[in-house]
Amino acid sequence: MTQPIGEEFQIPKPKVLGPRNDPLDIIQTRLRTHGRPASIAGPMVRYSKLPFRQVCRHYDVDIVYTPMILAREFVRNSHARMADFSTNKGDAPLIVQVGVNNVSDLLKFVEMVAPYCDGVGINCGCPIREQIREGIGCALIYNPDLLCSMVSAVKQKYGEKLRLETKIRIHENLDETVTLCKRLCDAGVDWITIHGRTRTTRSSVPANFEAIKYVVDRLGDKHVPIIANGDCFSRQDLQRITEITGVDGVMAVRGLLNNPAMLSGYDTCPWGCVELFWHYALEYGGLPYQLLQHHLFCMLENMQLKKSLLKKLMTIQCTAELLDWFDENFILKRHGEPGFAVQKDIPYK
């Protein structure tokens, strides 16, 4: 059954960009204003939800991504929209990452998310076979005509009002990556993130920063910022990767899952980060239990919590029980209590 659409209405315009939320401006100015390259929390399937994004921002991450959202589902299904994207006033600068394989879906998707984010990133790096078969993710780096037509279509429609990024992987032949990046620059992309692995390189193999440098060295005349991605597990890595590659910023992903405070200079996850995560996760209406449990497991494992306690944590079945377990074993401060979110070491009871 179809329902009448009702009266005509105005579609909200893209969010206004300024120095505080324009990701391109931040990438271009961080070195001058903060003495360091821009720091970016990349998209993680399932995990880059609102509470985690806010925790990352608390610890010096400049720009944060949502998980990849499939455009096809988002523009067709209200349940998918509700499940995939939630936000708030503090959720900025925010890049919404999209998985897409055609111009039509991308333009519709951008129209729907642009009022609530500071940029859109096209996922051209996801190596999952099911997505590649659909022409999504890193299939796009082997389909430059389609990818560039998608970038052109969005930039022709929105111009400087919307930031558009592409996150790619390197090709087996690096000159193909250079050619693709040049075409993307000509199509109007605002910045490019390059993951230093090919689509078949395992994450246990170190990221190839020399390859990123090779590409960066050949794009100088395009004046489009490049971000390096892969194997950033500390603030020192951020500096080291920038020095090797000559990029304008670094995107961290797995490292932040274990220690969202790492770019603030914490070698291991501070306890305050755990308290903050609990606070945001519950105040924002809750996270699916398995996500909450996994986030906390990663942080506590990074803090080298006793193995027996980690094992016990994984047997707990629900949020309330997990909260009780924290209160039984540690001093977990709530928002408003003195010393909330500042403790570094685990406060065992």
């Binding site: 179809t2 329902q3 659409i5 009702g6 209405f9 579609i11 909200p12 609102l50 523009v75 067709r76 209200s78 929209r81 509700m82 994207f85 939630s86 936000t87 708030n88 006033k89 503090g90 129209e111 729907m112 998310v113 009022p115 609530y116 606070h279 945001y280 105040e283 924002y284 209406g285």
Partner: peptide, 21 residues
Amino acid sequence: RQLHDYFQVQNGPKVTEVGWM
């Protein structure tokens, strides 16, 4: 129809500020 549902009925994405409850 989806635009109408998203912008008019749902008022955009789910927005949860601290203390919204």
